[in-house]
Write a protein that binds this DNA or RNA. Structure first.
Lengths: 247, 247
DNA sequence: ATTTATATGTCGACT
DNA sequence: AGTCGACGTATAAAT
């Protein structure tokens, strides 16, 4: 049997089950009425209500209400779970250091507690990421523009590694910045840093008006208005491209 | 009774419980062995393994493994849950539009299914946020510097609303950007945009070297090295301040 | 609906 | 341990 489960346990029964589950390294879920308090990077308090508490063997803790993708309170992996009965009620506390943080869940009622031994199956394969966009461009450089030749990926510079470095049909160096989705002005700033770094590296004195020709190309499905303005100011180009080919 | 719970149900029993739970608007958790596939903004596939599926009445769906704060797959609130038995196995599908996204969880075994009617208790009070930092500064402007006078919060500009606008002891306009924690270079860029916008608004032509005096102050607990460099380049100041007073 | 800034963001990679 | 950039980021506020 890989799952243990108790319905409407006493607080002491719940404590035993929890301690056993921690011992076994189980993934735990607790339904019940509780208050939650957190103190660490910030601090918060949550009044009594029905919630779902999830405790993972890697130390992660999640408190979920009936709404939202995000837990209302949580503790990151690497924390330590402790269960106790205080003043007749089940108290679950998850703590970590660096930074010091404590999450405390106090149950007035435990409705359901389940624990499952979890095995394997963490092999997620994700498609449509920035990685895919790069692959696509390396396979078909003409998608950037006719005559474009990629020379290097993750090319180092004083401003950090640039996504793709290459030359255009005229032999002019081109810095390509990849974004998997619609981008704002920050992406233009990032591209500008790489271009500036490369111009300096290639020998131009900054601001002498004769800096070496280096082009900047932003590859992204689309731009916000402000991003388009900034791109134009800098004299960079935009190539509309998705990480995955259209169906 | 607010909680229903079944242990090792048949796929058909699980289906009935799920449909009832959707009908009642319950918060649902399902332990079991399953495969997961997602298609939408990106696409992913996850092989067979033991996982926890959480289904919320607001449409959110979460697939959790034994590791990590984040679900390995999910669907945002506003999605629609559907359960069915296909080829003798429980299939839960969560779909939404704009963008079109589908999450499909196929169970080979359902170990435990629980559903709880959830009531209220969503009144989280959070402390230590940027909001707190602003409050703190408005109450004690001298924390920024002696003689500083806040004039406006969320003051509009062409670059968006600035956190705090005021004047220093000399009467020079000051733009204050607030960050609740250690900041990188992006925050300096944000502050620079506000300062530039304000200089233009106050009548200086950009780049004429005689733009009106406007100071920029970044209030944050600390800075990264690169952020400090950029701050110095721009001639802005840093004030070390936490959102909450030290104990 | 789109854009913008925040988040106890989380997470991975690299120094 | 600290820094940096990506994320199917999520989320809320404003336009």
């Amino acid at each position: 049997m890989t799952v243990t489960s108790v319905h409407d346990p006493s607080h002491r029964e719940a404590l035993w089950e929890l301690e056993d589950a921690f011992e076994r390294g189980d993934l735990v879920s607790v339904f019940g009425r509780c208050t939650v308090s957190y103190e660490g990077r910030a601090a918060s308090d949550l009044g009594a209500g029905d919630r779902l508490l999830v405790l993972k063997p890697d130390g992660a803790a999640l408190v979920h209400t009936d709404e939202g993708r995000q837990p209302v309170n949580w503790q990151p992996p690497g924390s330590e779970h402790h269960a106790a009965v205080r003043e007749g009620r089940l108290r679950v506390r998850s703590t970590r250091s660096n930074p010091d943080e404590t999450l405390t869940v106090r149950f007035s009622d435990v409705h359901q507690l389940s624990a499952m031994a979890v095995t394997g199956g963490r092999d997620l394969t994700l498609h449509g990421s920035e990685e895919d966009l790069r692959t696509r461009i390396l396979e078909r450089p003409d998608l950037v523009e006719p005559g474009f030749e990629p020379r290097e990926t993750e090319r180092p510079s004083s401003a950090g590694p640039m996504d793709v470095f290459g030359v255009d049909a005229e032999g002019t160096p081109v810095v390509v910045e990849l974004k998997r989705r619609r981008v704002g002005p920050d992406a233009v700033g990032q591209l500008a840093r790489y271009v500036r770094a490369l111009r300096e590296e290639l020998g131009g004195e900054e601001g002498d008006g004769a800096s070496p020709a280096v082009r900047g190309v932003l590859v992204a499905p689309s731009l916000t208005d402000r991003a388009a303005e900034r791109l134009a100011e800098r004299g960079f180009d935009h190539v509309a491209l998705d990480p995955t080919p259209e169906e």
